[in-house]
């Protein structure tokens, strides 16, 4: 099956100008392909660069060298060299990112927040609302909270709203940055179900899961990122 994400020879280091130009190598020569319907889990100890790799794929971090091809419906985009506009379009249509942290927007209700994420991709209002409600139900967010802005929610509730937000649209590629961290068993299971749903729909996923049980269940492959350890510059 043709890969949905092709990462080839990517390396990244930070230059800390405020600390006398110190070089902080992150990863080197990352090469990785992910196919449609496949969930690849990044493994390795913390600090090995798992999160940085996700951020590079999302275009949040720049890369020093290499290519990151994301195959959108209308063709591949090299995130490593794409213009901001191309990345914005890619994120809107094809590339989703789910983290455990919700950047709450004041005064927008939980439901509207999720509907908006689907609407951005062009899903029409009624269908978007239906999906959003079903996701909130599956993630056990009490219905009385749906119409409230999540700013006042508990950490776990905010996290689940954010997961719903990440899963609501039809992105071809999803990046999962520890979405199950600090969730209870019931909700972890719900997230696992969501990942299976996405797989069935042919979504390519790259994730970080600290919870071993979840990792074993969702991963088609586990890639240990320590093999991409950057050589000190």
């Amino acid at each position: 099956m043709a890969p949905r994400v092709e990462i080839d020879g990517v390396s990244k280091s930070f230059v800390m100008h405020l600390q006398g130009g110190k070089q902080l190598p992150v990863v080197g020569n990352v090469s990785l392909d992910v196919s449609a319907g496949e969930c690849v889990v990044l493994g390795g100890p913390s600090g090995a660069g798992k999160s940085s790799i996700l951020k590079m794929i999302y275009g949040n971090y720049r890369v020093d060298s290499g290519h990151i091809l994301v195959h959108a419906a209308d063709g591949p985009v090299d995130v490593a060299s794409a213009s901001p506009r191309e990345i914005i379009r890619l994120r809107r249509q094809s590339l989703g990112y789910v983290s455990q942290f919700l950047r709450a927007i004041p005064r927008v209700s939980a439901l509207d927040l999720i509907v908006a994420a689907a609407r951005e991709q062009g899903i029409e209002e009624e269908r978007a609302t239906k999906r959003a409600k079903s996701l909130l139900e599956r993630l056990n967010v009490p219905e009385r909270l749906w119409s409230l802005p999540p700013a006042t929610f508990s950490g776990g509730e905010q996290q689940r709203v954010n997961i719903a937000r990440g899963f609501v649209a039809d992105h071809r590629v999803l990046l999962l940055d520890e979405p199950t961290a600090s969730l209870d068993a019931v909700n972890r299971a719900a997230v696992v179900e969501l990942v299976f749903d996405k797989k069935r729909h042919g979504v390519a996923m790259i994730g970080i899961f600290h919870d071993e049980d979840v990792r074993e269940r969702v991963a088609d492959r586990i890639v240990d990122v320590t093999r991409f350890a950057a050589k000190a510059a």
């Binding site: 951020k55 275009g59 720049r62 901001p84 914005i88």
Partner: peptide, 12 residues
């Protein structure tokens, strides 16, 4: 560059 890129991974 992209807003989150410049703010999260500033180069200059």
């Amino acid at each position: 560059g992209l807003t989150d890129q410049v703010l999260d991974d500033p180069r200059e």
